[in-house]
């Protein structure tokens, strides 16, 4: 079965994004397909390169990066939500900008069209943090 996940809550706001990462692991572990996780609204800060969680908590960003690296899951941040929160890749900065990209490794910035395509392709869509 093909799954798509939509994550909405901030990585620093409760355990929601950790739960979503565990569910993602379980989906893949059970032999289902998970191609895309779409992060919108406050969840886009999970892709901020400078994100740093307290040492006694699980590093949620790393969980997602590992998932992307090990299982080729695409982690897409909604461009509008990401930019409002200072998460930008090279493509979102003007070419003459003196600012640096803030997008963490393993994440991509994309439009809502990618969420539309991912839900269209999915048998099941799960929302986390709505």
């Amino acid at each position: 079965m093909q799954y798509t996940l939509l994550a909405l809550s901030s990585p620093s706001d409760g355990q929601c994004l950790l739960t979503a990462a565990r569910v993602a692991e379980a989906i893949i572990g059970k032999g289902h397909r998970l191609d895309t996780v779409f992060f919108s609204d406050a969840a886009t800060t999970v892709g901020l390169a400078t994100l740093s969680m307290p040492q006694d908590e699980i590093a949620v960003q790393r969980q997602w990066q590992r998932l992307a690296a090990d299982h080729a899951v695409e982690l897409v941040l909604c461009v509008a939500s990401a930019m409002q929160r200072g998460v930008v890749g090279v493509d979102e900065l003007p070419s003459d900008s003196e600012l640096h990209p803030t997008l963490a490794e393993g994440f991509r910035i994309g439009g809502l069209g990618q969420l539309v395509a991912a839900t269209h392709a999915a048998d099941r869509v799960l929302t986390f943090g709505g």
């Binding site: 909405l8 919108s40 909604c78 509008a80 939500s81 809502l112 069209g113 539309v116 709505g130």
Partner: peptide
């Protein structure tokens, strides 16, 4: 901002 994000997403789906 979730309300706004929801409406944005609804309109995007319809636009597609």
């Amino acid at each position: 901002s979730l309300a706004r994000a929801g409406i944005d997403t609804v309109l995007a789906y319809a636009a597609f």
